[in-house]
Design a protein around this nucleic acid. Sequence first.
DNA 1: CTGAAAGCGCTAACAG
DNA 2: CTGTTAGCGCTTTCAG
Lengths: 337, 337
Amino acid sequence: MVKITDVARHAGVSPSTVSYALSGKRPISEETRRRVHEAIHELGYRPHAGARALASSRSNVLALVIPLRAGIHIPVVMQFAVSVVTTARRYDHDVLLLTQEEGEEGLRRVADTALVDALILMDVQLHDPRLPLLRTLERPSVMIGFPASSEGLTCIDLDFKAAGERCVEHLAGLGHRVVALVGSPPEVYVRQTAFAQRVVQGFTAAADRNGLSSTVHPCEATPGSARAVAERLLREQPALTGVVVHNEPLLEPLIDAFEQLGLRVPGDLSVTAICPDELAESVRVPVTSVALPSAEIGTRAVELLIRKLGGGSTVPEKTLLPPRLTARASTGPRAAP
Amino acid sequence: MVKITDVARHAGVSPSTVSYALSGKRPISEETRRRVHEAIHELGYRPHAGARALASSRSNVLALVIPLRAGIHIPVVMQFAVSVVTTARRYDHDVLLLTQEEGEEGLRRVADTALVDALILMDVQLHDPRLPLLRTLERPSVMIGFPASSEGLTCIDLDFKAAGERCVEHLAGLGHRVVALVGSPPEVYVRQTAFAQRVVQGFTAAADRNGLSSTVHPCEATPGSARAVAERLLREQPALTGVVVHNEPLLEPLIDAFEQLGLRVPGDLSVTAICPDELAESVRVPVTSVALPSAEIGTRAVELLIRKLGGGSTVPEKTLLPPRLTARASTGPRAAP
DNA sequence: CTGAAAGCGCTAACAG
DNA sequence: CTGTTAGCGCTTTCAG
């Protein structure tokens, strides 16, 4: 293995000069800089990650904790992970993958052994058991999603409340008077995942504000249940003309179910969703939607962490990304009664 | 930060004894073992990962390289990643996540800096450009999938050729005489990803052997193209009664398309697939399928690596998991003509 | 069965 | 602008 002293000798300088030439932490003359890099190149030198971490107390690794549980749309998690890795690399960091399953002990382990410098957590719950730990951990973290109290923590997410509102306003603007929200599976609400509840809040508030009548329907992510909710909605709310879907796997089956029940989209029924743009675009009837910008959230989360690691600047505790609605073929004006 | 010398002092032993008590690399009397663990517990000691890696030349981290490209079913990748992480933890290892995008330079980087001890690669192509690198790298690796020549490497995957055969044999056994394979998107074949081609080989060979007439149809993973292939198949092969699908996102839309064209499944048409069991079970008509055992492959891949890291035993270069077909509602005997 | 002590390869004062 | 040197915290000979 070629080490820093080899490079130093080869370039005719001291080891520290090589180190500084690499880190840029002190000025190096152009001439020696060139010689050092030449030597590095010729010898194929790679600094030993462990030695570096030991000497600098920085591993340049971020931990990413991904959820496993039911009711979470896998492609969103994956896209998020990819964007975290890609962005981390831009800042010369790597990403260690942890599963939620490891729990608090897992977080403590990677933090306390200095395996990682900082942590990113997904799928945060309103009263997430990891919150107290994160506050005492000596390493910075960023959470995707908002717990009940985010004091002293850094959180980022789509503004789901505003997203729910935005969908309703879009429908209200088109003249719809009776709307329904088809939401995430019941277990997502039961375990008090913040984002699902916030959509409901926004949806309901905006409906009330606009004088619309509204109902909320948590729903399993199976094709069978799509048919079931569709039937139930038509039966219980015959005047329904606007639906907001916050349940990725159900989007397509639900539209199918409505059409099989004789409702044209958007002729008889307007449908909007909160989901990744790719999903909204890939449905047979492209769906008007508020984008779930997983990639952007991942990028921003890493950037927040890097800034926290930098030390100087302080970062905002809460970052809420404003909803961006794209009108597509699935919504239209309410048909004359 | 509490370090090994603190623990040693607290327990009244030397640092090396603490180290050995932790690693078990030499006999420790029951009494001192107890005292050491007590001290560790009381002080909340965690060995510093970097220091450990430096002193032992082992980081206890595995690299996992995941694909990004089109034509790959995301949930399979995700399930695979989770199973790798879970299994790695069982052997006291962590997992560093890399994207294919980083390319050979990325592999070289994490290997040469000793950030990781070993590598797992997914989405291997027939003539994968990373092969020569892997052979020269001083660290062990395992590939998911088989390149054209796997000499000197360790590969594992579902036996896709046998899987293709198994599907055909199942259909042949039910009396079907004309079968078609609806395959992965064309780009998957173009870039010579091994597994897609092997399915075709097995499918065709088994059809020939059984005297069935067969055709192969690479297919985009969009709902629109499902309809298109379905129509084309019926037009060009009116006698068709058996279909093998090797394209996850297309499975459900394709069955829908057939039924919309007036064919009952399995009454008029038997459908089998090569896909994850969860997918096969979740379709409206549960599909007879050969399982794509991502979790098992992930587990086995890690176990192979751990054995290679252990040094002693040598591991097989090729591990082909035999196909396991589960009969479900989508296949039945050929209707009397 | 246990201790002492020599590094592992790099960074960051400190000194010039 | 550059060199010298003292660790970073742990593992592992070597010695007993």
